[in-house]
Amino acid sequence: MHDGELFPVCTNCNWEPPPPELVFRLKEKLEKSDRSVVSFPSMQGGYALGGIAGGADIFVSTQRTPMEADALRAMVFQIAALLFLLAAGLVGVTLAANIVLVWPLRRLTHSVRKWQMEGVFDGRVTRSMPLELQRLGQAFTRATQRLSRHEARLQKAMAHQELLMKEIHHRVKNNLQIVASLLNLQANQIAHPEVKAEFALARDRIRALATLHRTLYAEDTLTSLNMAVFLKDLCEQTFHVAGEADAGRIQLQVESDSFWMDPDQAVPLALIVTEVVTNSIKYAFPDGREGVIHVRLTKNGSLVTLSVGDNGIGCSFDPASGTPGIGLKLIHGFARQLKASLSYSGKEGVLFTLVMHLDKAQNP
């Protein structure tokens, strides 16, 4: 009724009034809706509310019969069973795909990575794998076996080549030492001081080359020189040959950054150092004077700076004073070979400065 009171339309139907909250919700829904009937489903059945003449509404309640309830339960059970079977099927397919495809691929990938790191390939091909994966694993196995054989042959060839290169450097060093000794013997037979000095200079240059080959033979790499080791060895040998190693009259200071240089650049650099150090020993400290000869080699990026000099009596490099000697000509020639800038001064001692670019900076 319009005042909210409920009256049943049947006289003997055991009708039970619905909850007031339900009726109130349906009335709100009907007022807000543009339809004449609104409904509300429930687990037991359903409810509907619609307007009739005279401002009254009719409220209808339906309940499921036992057969309908059984049918609903059966349908829900079947849907749940279908969903369960679908989920089980998906799990089974996923597991089968993992067993048949994913896990063999992972094992094959792990075998390839292990082969990259350790050089051993173990494909573990089984008959449970798909035929394509079996063929792929067998192909990988054959390919890695061939690569391993080729790698073993290459390593053997490289070891043999390295041994030959060491032997060549050793023989060249011995031959250069023999030539230096012959020049030294020949110089002892010469009475003219200037000619004897030229023989001694030639001997020192050859010994510098022998020192380079000895250093290459001693190093683990045959394609580059550790300049800190090589320069110190070269200068100490030059001092020893000149007889100044134990005299104590002239001090030798050798400073070098630790870096690697290609032998093609190290040879001219070593000859320049030998030339300047030898001349300083001979001419910078006459009449028993004491002094210091310094050799510094620094590296800044690809730029290498060589500084060789002394604090002796100095020297005049004025072209007007006469024709430059063969030593200065050689130094200029070696600097051109290195494509380096060369500067020198003879005031308050001799100082040669060479700036060049490093072609190869190897770090064995």
Rank of each mutant, 00 (worst) to 15 (best):
F285E: 01
E132R: 04
L30Q: 02
M1V: 15
I250F: 07
F84Q: 05
A56C: 04
T141Q: 13
S224R: 08
R289K: 06
R203L: 09
Q177C: 00
T211S: 08
H170K: 09
F40Y: 09
M165D: 14
Q362T: 08
I313N: 06
L86C: 05
R149A: 05
L216N: 01
L306G: 00
E244R: 10
N300Q: 14
L297V: 04
I190T: 07
P20D: 03
G46W: 04
A200D: 01
K347R: 10
A152C: 08
S181Q: 15
C235S: 07
Q78V: 04
H240N: 15
G346Y: 00
L201A: 14
G248R: 06
L201N: 08
R73P: 01
N14T: 05
L342T: 09
F84R: 02
S181F: 09
M129S: 09
N226D: 11
L297T: 03
R296Q: 10
A180H: 04
D204I: 00
L330E: 02
L201Y: 13
F24C: 05
S316F: 06
L154A: 09
R205K: 10
A210Q: 03
L82E: 10
A80D: 08
S280D: 04
I326W: 00
K114V: 04
K282R: 14
L209C: 14
M75T: 08
F121I: 07
E132T: 10
T109L: 13
E151D: 13
K27F: 01
L22K: 08
R135E: 15
S341W: 02
V355A: 14
P263S: 04
G291P: 00
K329F: 08
G137M: 12
H357A: 06
L303R: 14
L6P: 01
W115M: 09
D122Y: 02
P104Y: 00
A218G: 11
N14C: 12
L6R: 03
I293V: 09
R73Q: 12
A139D: 14
A266W: 02
V254L: 00
N184R: 10
Q177F: 03
V292N: 14
D310V: 07
